[in-house]
Write a protein that binds this DNA or RNA. Sequence first.
DNA 1: GTGAAAGCGCTAACAT
DNA 2: ATGTTAGCGCTTTCAC
Lengths: 390, 390
Amino acid sequence: MNGRPTIKDVARKAGLSLSTVSLVLNKRENVSDETRRKVLDVINELGYYPQRSARGLASKLSGNIGFVLTDDHFTQAEPFYTKIFLGTELEARKYNYYVLLTTVARTVKETDEIPRFLLEQNVDGVIIAGRIGLSWIEYIRRFKLPLVLIDYDVARHNLSSVVMDNRGGAQLVVDHLHKGGHTKIGFVGGDLDHPSIAERYLSFRETMQARGLSLNGAWVQVDEADTRIRDGYEAMKKILNSADRPTAIFAANDAMAIGCIRCLKESGLRVPYDMAVVGFDNIEAGLYVEPRLTTINVHREEMGELALRRIMEMINHQNNVVTKTLAPVELVVRESCGIKTQEHGHQIPHTFSKQGGNHEDLAHGFGTGSRSADVSVGSGGTEHEPASER
Amino acid sequence: MNGRPTIKDVARKAGLSLSTVSLVLNKRENVSDETRRKVLDVINELGYYPQRSARGLASKLSGNIGFVLTDDHFTQAEPFYTKIFLGTELEARKYNYYVLLTTVARTVKETDEIPRFLLEQNVDGVIIAGRIGLSWIEYIRRFKLPLVLIDYDVARHNLSSVVMDNRGGAQLVVDHLHKGGHTKIGFVGGDLDHPSIAERYLSFRETMQARGLSLNGAWVQVDEADTRIRDGYEAMKKILNSADRPTAIFAANDAMAIGCIRCLKESGLRVPYDMAVVGFDNIEAGLYVEPRLTTINVHREEMGELALRRIMEMINHQNNVVTKTLAPVELVVRESCGIKTQEHGHQIPHTFSKQGGNHEDLAHGFGTGSRSADVSVGSGGTEHEPASER
DNA sequence: GTGAAAGCGCTAACAT
DNA sequence: ATGTTAGCGCTTTCAC
């Protein structure tokens, strides 16, 4: 931490004043090209880097962004939020910003620790990722810092957010099934309080109607308490009880879809031949069910990136307009939707993103011949196994 | 970011000087109790918090620790390093330190980005977690910052490290199998360049000898290129080719153990009845194989904690003695080792309808997502149930 | 376009 | 035990 060159050294060696060097450092316009060159040369020669805290103190900006995550989200096996964080971090480098990651309990309690970066004015903006207690959002708002939510939103708070295009995704699913010949499509959901689930559900209904497909109440089960495997299983059971059955199920997320598949298998039904199933989220487990799950994918890193860019805009331009950013989604076609059945050898329609194949590399396990040829979009993937040498 | 009270305001309101307030802030001894009380009261009243950058500039300490992780480690599904990071972060709060998480490629390339916190003197110490290119270690060493490795070590670099007790773990495994009546124990490994794998292997040999158990060369397969499922599968195949077969296999990690189990099942052998299998690491996937895997667990958060404490010692006391810290491990007994099953002679229930499914907690993003990774353990033999509700 | 000077909010000698 | 006084390394008016 010692003996490293300071801006003073640069100024002296360049035969210029501190302020001129500072202007160059901050990429201001009013510096002659010649001067700029000279300063840059000296900086390079000396291996100079401006020191963070000094900068922060003088500029009133910390150069940090706070990234808040509930602990359960951070440590869950599905690396959803870690990837979002990674996207944010990578993007932040371009702005020479740091991301301070902190986890919190779901809701603020009196006794709880408040992220210190708020109290110490150590961040210029805050990103909150994932569903979190309203109390946290309200608490953090009071600091009057630029704030962006990722993968979550609260209608009544009018905050900027980056969420995946849930509506678009639901539309992709319905259209895909429809094109595949399905007209009797059911929906399985739960926890409609969650904005993402609610949007998927609403968009499902809208798209069905827009395509002239009729909705059957018995095929739509959205009253489950949660959106986990068990809930999907239970919802599927109810649907199977109806006299007339749908030929395809759209599950509000992959966990529920997996539950549906289990239920169908237990009932002796074959997926996708007797019933097609499509999920949402593209979690890794979707690759391990049989048949592998057709689902909707979103580029997680991109979401983190978008949020960071938005925050930086707010910081740099005092631009506090509330924006709702939609991260594009794509359909990942695997076996569970039954469009390309091996029996009939149908082709996969062109409308599907080629990038879907990228996610195949999540494939787990190794081919010992047990798995039939992949029916997937894009190139075959590299195999990937759980942590070996970590 | 404005109008917040400064140390000046506190001093004025308390009728004291700046330095006295500063002394209180920094918990120095030479302040009368009365004065301290008064200052603390005013601080509370004003809601004052010292500002990070100002502190940093004056004290020459950034108040940050750099946490370096290779990107593949960070985003892998097994939340091993995220939990270590979490442990570090939680512990850092106690010291009022921030942890700057950054990911890097495996090895330093000329074109690569160097973690900026090094260049900007924005950290007081660095933690590197997981196996990483030597070039990185060498590069970072040059900054002369306190440095601690987690879950990795490089013999010739004489660095402080926190690693799990690999030798102790291997001993636990051998002793457990031995006590269960096994005397013919095989070992499956690979990539002996990895210090953890090498230690497990060496300790396996040592313990076997110490217990008077003979080693059969045909039962020890450590030449696989890697330590993944596939490698375990191949190694197991070789062992099964030997005329005389062991009754138990100790795999160098869980991935390999899973490979062993697959191979055994394909060969029509029953685990644990025909062959017991024990792994190492306690990865989640070990809960989803059938039978569920007996393994060695380490408290990940604790490892992160220990490293942070060590770094703080180095920073605060200029204590640069090199220390090797062992994080304690524990045996997690499940069905694959056959000990418990034999004793109690019960079947292994493993159906969705009864247990709620192994993937019950895969729900991501939304939903409750609580994954109680409770590892109830001990050679005491407590049965460990996967996180699932009913 | 460049320089001089005044801080930013804190810590750390050094006095008292 | 408390106060005085310099800075820490940078940004930012404001002159010129």
